[in-house]
Design a binder for these strands. Structure first.
Lengths: 157, 157
DNA sequence: ATAACTGCTTACCGTCGCTAACTATTCCCG
DNA sequence: CGGGAATAGTTAGCGACGGTAAGCAGTTAT
């Protein structure tokens, strides 16, 4: 007995191969649209942008990081990270201090306010996306997981 | 007979359900990074941005559309679409003309130059992404396809 | 005929990313 | 030790991309 087959008829590997350009195109547009939607879905009472939240999340995990490490992690140039950290510092979410051994460095650490924000935000910000995923079946969820890891790898290559 | 199970050990539906927040988070960051990468990968000799290309692609499929229809299709506010169309018109990729029955409308249609650009660009712009996908096996490709269609649906919901 | 609505445009603003050029510190080598 | 090279961040300025508010012109309804 066939369970629900997501969308496609079973295709052979050969046919699939010739579809690569099409998959590339489809993936590209869906990624673009998805990120636009995600950017819009932030909670209104939260003034932190997606980028800022990602930084704050990194600091939530590792209490203190250099600005350079943050930039590398987010795959962003140092000036972009400087701006984000400025913004976060003004809001009281993080604090800066000069590096101890190397005073050129800037050590960024998260404040209690930042920590609280991350916890609250993890709940509310991903809530919308999680809600969209809740109706998916196990196969679809697995596909998303696989695709996400491939995208991560491609984006980082 | 079980075909290849992408990456994960067989998980029950119950376990999978509890992973939803994590999948949401992973998906979100990979989408953000992926789109950043895609934006950077455009071919240097092509002065059209990703958004403009999407519009041109829509016009390639349906010869003539109103500006409003284009905005709706790209899930963008009318002013944003006005700007893109201005840009495309200046470059000679599209032409504007007033609507016939309703002269408030603006009908946008693609020129030969626009058509040529789409064809050339489809080849060259997605080439990079396609190259990244070429080493994937059939299951992974299927996962991408499924994920893309889900993302499309979510983004459009 | 006029009021309300609609489709697009204009003006302005914010985010996010980049490069180039600068400062301050550290490292290395003669 | 001293001085140039390298490194970590910052500042300044730009471009792409998105939004809202307000205005204008054409259409519809009363």
């Amino acid at each position: 007995m066939l369970t629900v087959m997501p969308t496609a008829q079973p295709v052979t590997a050969v046919e699939t191969t010739s579809d690569i350009p099409e998959v590339a195109s489809v993936l590209r547009t869906s990624v673009m649209r998805m990120r636009r939607r995600l950017a819009n879905e932030r909670h209104p009472d939260n003034d932190l942008s997606l980028g800022s939240m990602a930084v704050l999340g990194a600091l939530y995990a590792n209490d203190e990081m250099t600005l350079g490490a943050l930039a590398a992690r987010e795959r962003v140039q140092p000036p972009s990270m400087t701006r984000m950290v400025n913004f976060l510092e003004e809001g009281g979410y993080v604090v800066r201090r000069p590096g101890e051994t190397d005073r050129r460095q800037v050590l960024v650490s998260i404040t209690d306010k930042g920590r609280r924000t991350v916890r609250k935000d993890r709940l509310s910000r991903d809530a919308w996306l999680a809600q969209q995923l809740v109706d998916l079946d196990a196969d679809e969820l697995a596909a998303i997981r696989t695709a996400a890891s491939i995208m991560e790898r491609i984006a980082t290559s």
